[in-house]
Design a protein around this nucleic acid. Sequence first.
DNA 1: TAGTATCGATACGCTATCGTTTCGTTATTC
DNA 2: GAATAACGAAACGATAGCGTATCGATACTA
Lengths: 203, 203
Amino acid sequence: MKVNEDAGAAKARAGRPRDPRLDEAVVAATLRLLAEEGYAQLTVERIAAQAGVGKASLYRRWPDKVSVVLEAVSRNPERPAVPDTGSLRGDALTYLQTLVRYRTQHFDAISAISGEALSNQRFGDAFRAGMTEPVMAGMDTILQRAIARGEISPETDVALLSSVPPALLQMQRLLAGRHPDNDLVERIVDQFFSPDTDESELP
Amino acid sequence: MKVNEDAGAAKARAGRPRDPRLDEAVVAATLRLLAEEGYAQLTVERIAAQAGVGKASLYRRWPDKVSVVLEAVSRNPERPAVPDTGSLRGDALTYLQTLVRYRTQHFDAISAISGEALSNQRFGDAFRAGMTEPVMAGMDTILQRAIARGEISPETDVALLSSVPPALLQMQRLLAGRHPDNDLVERIVDQFFSPDTDESELP
DNA sequence: TAGTATCGATACGCTATCGTTTCGTTATTC
DNA sequence: GAATAACGAAACGATAGCGTATCGATACTA
């Protein structure tokens, strides 16, 4: 079932080879424009100009504009390691602060296409690939460990609780118009990931 | 400081008067198209056709397409009364179930412009007018009452907790692709608006 | 050295859609 | 009944943006 001589080897063809840095430049430019100006303002010409790339090179790699956008937002950039500080509060704080620090632009770009995600299958899949996978998976791990330690009830709705940080970070961004900061992360952790600060179990 | 003869009275002019039902038809059509097909697919021609209205009548009322969209999403439709069942759990359950039942389309329309809200001032304001005002205000009242009754700590971050239901309902809509139902509302209420079901204060 | 594929730049054709205008008709005031 | 303004329908001009094609230059294979 061999596909082609160079399908696996990926080398040895006549002509000038493609510059792999152009792929990255286009993706980065797309994310930046999406985050800063929104999907409605996004044009192929502006992506190419922002990336310092000719339109032809872009269309050599992707069949149309939508495909560029979908790949850009569903690519998973550097994923922060899930911390293991020994407490739910510590883990959540560390993880969320790292996320906020390194992935603000990516979150904004995802938000910029969220409107289309409701009515368009491909955008919905890209939204999930860019949001669920990298964010909620980490929170899930953190919560499972907290349950194993006995910090929170085994009946905790982990899936629901995992979606609280990304949902609130995005919502506060929309409501307040500012990027989330460490203060907001602390409020979220205090309210939702600090077992029993005000009620019980003080031994 | 009189503006015009009929500015306040709003009547008594020559010629056929405008039909106020057309305003409603345009707004309703805009919300429906936004919710079902997204902002990127929205055109003036389709709004007019969906509303059964000529384009001229639309442009007689609004200066451009953006203004139509902004008015449609920031109008506040029927606002459900804030219930007073005597418990946080009962209030939250009743209020959120009513919201989910009656305002799903409006929420989806708001989501459809949320991408633009990040990068465009006017859309940001419309998002807040259509989301913050009608939803979080009700949750705020419910939580203040719960604090007064002693159901939850006075140090509860009310603003943050108020934003959990709309944020989670929208997020789950994006993640799961289905409209929120009573089951999801119950999970949210169980997890975030049911004081101390699994820890303490059983007398 | 010949052949080929990529590069940025740029011109091109095509389509979609905005916002305007015109038409004959209808509702209201004077 | 004359004047006026809104009504739906439809044609219109203008523009923006997509995706393609062409250019000379460049980088690689054979």
